[in-house]
Design a protein around this nucleic acid. Structure first.
Length: 295
DNA sequence: AACGAATTCAACCGCCATCCA
DNA sequence: GTGGATGGCGGTTGAATTCGT
């Protein structure tokens, strides 16, 4: 299929936006909205392509954009979300009110990646020392090694992942950059390994033998989204293992729980996720998995 | 003060997914 | 079912700015 170019190159302006152009775009969108980006510049009288207008609006002119430096809390949130979601900047941005995917992407590449790399070097040297002085390997350690092998072989779970081909730095704190690659590797009660991304989990019965279990598309993303702008009701999972120890980790999975008493609520989306992530270091990832997941 | 190196970040590019005729 | 149009996303670029010497 031959695509028409994004925009007519002739006569259309590129490069930085002027304040006048910004004002025209703002005025137009305030008045008419942006139902059709392609047609917008023509209608608004801008010599820009629709894509450029959309980008300018979503990344800079939108009234709800939060400008300025990222707080430490925001940075930690990005790091943790990146662990879970990979390079899905828009998904990460949706958890950080007022921040854009482009901004988060820039912060990641300019600050956070370097910081993690530093930490990784420190961690690796310690780890190497530990390996050299340890002779006993537990079953758990073996499973972790298998997990690392699986990650190094870049097991690609969903279709969009094929896009990322470049090999980037990876650390334990920064799993595959590819958005759709593995988010967590856990060992189940039966010692079988579970490799999960945000859409599904795979059970590894034996080395090299993956039995694939497809979960609801975007299950986790939707679960995550449900925390936005609402009270999060979580007592449905109070019966879960460790739930009493980690009430902050219980997920809002059942709408039936709305309106019931004896539940924990989070009015602030950021607090909710921050609590999850700061607590995540202390628990095994499978706690986060709902119990309908197969063993 | 001057200059080159390093960093930042707005903007562009190309691909993919979805919608719709 | 097919293909064109469009929106959205992630990777990359390059001009502007900051930093170090």
């Amino acid at each position: 299929m031959v695509r028409a170019p994004c925009c007519e190159k002739m006569g259309l302006k590129k490069g930085p936006w002027t304040p006048e152009e910004d004002q025209i775009l703002i005025n137009y969108i305030r008045q008419y909205g942006h139902s059709n980006w392609r047609a917008l510049p023509k209608l608004a009288g801008l010599l820009r392509c629709g894509k450029s207008c959309r980008l300018r609006w979503t990344n800079y002119l939108r009234p709800d954009i939060k400008r300025g430096n990222f707080s430490r809390e925001e940075e930690e949130t990005i790091i943790k979300l990146h662990e879970m979601l990979g390079n899905r900047w828009s998904a990460i941005a949706s958890r950080l009110p007022g921040r854009t995917d482009n901004e988060i992407k820039n912060v990641w590449h300019t600050h956070l990646k370097k910081r993690l790399k530093k930490n990784h070097v420190t961690h690796e040297s310690k780890r190497q020392h530990s390996i050299n002085t340890t002779t006993k390997h537990t079953q758990e350690a073996n499973n972790k090694e298998e997990a690392e092998v699986a990650m190094n072989h870049n097991i690609n779970i969903s279709s969009r992942g094929a896009k990322s081909e470049s090999v980037e730095y990876r650390s334990p704190a920064s799993p595959p950059q590819c958005s759709s690659e593995i988010s967590s590797v856990t060992t189940g009660a039966d010692n079988n390994m579970m490799i999960c991304d945000d859409n599904m989990c795979m059970k590894v019965d034996s080395p090299g033998n993956f039995s694939e279990i497809i979960m609801d598309e975007n299950f986790w993303l939707e679960a995550l989204s449900s925390a936005e702008n609402c009270e999060v009701v979580v007592n449905e999972f109070s019966a879960m293992d460790n739930a009493d120890d980690h009430p902050e980790l219980q997920f809002p999975l059942s709408p039936l729980t709305y309106g019931t008493s004896n539940h924990i609520t989070y009015n602030n989306e950021m607090d909710f996720w921050y609590n999850i992530f700061t607590g995540a270091d202390e628990i095994t990832p499978e706690i986060l998995l709902p119990d309908f997941l197969p063993n």
